[in-house]
Simulated assay, not measured.
Amino acid sequence: MNTQPNVLLIDDDADLLEIYTFALEEMGCVVTTAHDGLEGLERALALHPDLILTDVHMPRMNGLELCCWLRADERLRGTPLILHSSENAIIAPRGEVFLHKDGDLSRLLAQVRRSLGGGRDGPTLASVA
Rank of each mutant, 00 (worst) to 15 (best):
R77Q: 14
L51F: 03
G95N: 11
R120W: 00
I90C: 08
V31G: 07
D50P: 04
D12E: 11
G103Y: 07
K101H: 03
T3A: 15
R113A: 15
D15W: 02
D50K: 01
Q4C: 12
L70D: 02
L8F: 10
D73Q: 14
G28F: 06
L116R: 02
N62V: 07
D13C: 09
L83K: 07
S127P: 00
N2C: 05
L45V: 12
H57T: 12
E87Q: 14
P93W: 10
L81G: 06
A23W: 00
C67P: 02
R75S: 13
V30G: 05
N88I: 13
L41C: 07
L83S: 05
L66E: 08
P59I: 08
I90G: 03
W69F: 14
L16D: 04
S86E: 14
G122W: 02
H57L: 14
A46E: 15
L108F: 06
N2P: 14
I91N: 14
E87F: 11
A72K: 13
L47Y: 01
F98P: 11
A44D: 08
L53Y: 03
H35W: 03
D50Y: 00
N6E: 14
N2A: 15
N6M: 12
R60P: 01
M1V: 13
A92M: 11
V128T: 13
M1H: 13
G117T: 00
G95Q: 11
A34E: 09
E18D: 00
L109S: 08
N62S: 05
G28W: 07
N62W: 05
P93S: 08
N88T: 14
L8A: 09
N6V: 13
R94G: 08
Y20I: 00
V56D: 09
L53N: 04
E39W: 02
R120T: 01
Q111T: 14
S86M: 13
D50W: 00
H100Y: 12
H100F: 12
V30I: 15
L83I: 01
L38W: 13
P5S: 05
A72W: 01
H100D: 02
G63M: 11
L8T: 03
P49K: 10
G119L: 12
G95H: 10
N88W: 09
Y20E: 04
R107A: 15
G78I: 02
G37D: 12
T79A: 07
D50C: 01
K101A: 06
R113W: 06
L105Q: 11
I90N: 02
S85V: 05
T124W: 00
L116H: 02
D12K: 06
L9D: 03
V56N: 09
T79Y: 02
L53S: 05
G119N: 13
G118L: 05
L51N: 08
L105F: 03
V128F: 09
D12R: 06
L66C: 08
L64R: 08
R60D: 11
H48P: 02
A14W: 01
L24I: 07
E26V: 06
T3S: 15
I10L: 10
L17T: 01
D73G: 04
F22I: 07
A129D: 11
